[in-house]
Design a protein around this nucleic acid. Sequence first.
DNA 1: CTCGGTCAAGGATAC
DNA 2: GTATCCTTGACCGAG
Length: 296
Amino acid sequence: MLGFACICNTLKENGSFRTVTVKTLSKLSEEEKMKRLVSAAVDNLYNTLQILKWCKENNILMYRLSSALIPLATYIDDWRWWENEDIVNMCSKIKEFTAQSGIRISLHPDQFCVLNSNRPEVVQNSIKILEHLNKLSNLVGNKILIIHTGSTVGGKAKAIQRFIDNFKLLTPDIQDKLALENDDKSFGVREVLDICEAIGIPMILDIHHYNCQNEGESLFDLRERIIATWKGKRPKMHLSSGKTAFTDPHHADFITQIDYKTALEFAKDDFDIMLECKQKELALLKLREGENTCST
DNA sequence: CTCGGTCAAGGATAC
DNA sequence: GTATCCTTGACCGAG
């Protein structure tokens, strides 16, 4: 099955998310600050629920939540957002809806979460981000947090060791949710697979990242090992196309036929496929149309 | 109202 | 060390 990430263009004003900047916040009174943050968070969770409902209506059973639903959550030290009744209620609705509709959700911390950084303060902040998203995950019923290996400072071998060491600092609850994805510049499929096997977490294969960065290894040769890291759970993979060329790291609006074909050949009936392209759900619907045309 | 500069955060790279 | 790019869409404020 296919899924898409975050924004739903079709829903217009209810298909995207509010943000709050530090600068804006600094101009408000203490009371107004909280109001602004909470209302943005509630709106974002409400919109998430609208998108999930749209997904269900359109028989799309996989969706990635935005990682910025609770604005500035790890920046405002004394904001205990998880104790706010409106926020928690909205989270419960999402949890309930995804459970009853069978939509598979996931969460992807952004580039600032670098668990293997050589800078202790960055590691601490990364753990803070993971703790925040873990808390949110438990409230909305999300079971997977997908990250990249991170920095290559000091050489890849040391960087991988730092990742493994810092992984051990995480609570078991977070460790259980973590999955690792190969990236387009530093850590390729083979390296990420080795790490996943070493610490016992699932591997997310990103085919476009593999196209951008590989050592000539065959994906099909590694297929069974990748599946095995999921320990019986249904594996997931990522798919996008290059914007200006096959190996352009920038994501295109849609998925090319050749990339889709390759992904399907690899996935067979064993993987769910998360689309990472600019046109989100529109690209998914387009692929599905193509699929119907071909098969009927 | 519209448009463009700006935004918490890291890292890689070039100089 | 410092500047710049990567990359991202929402927002703020200048006009």
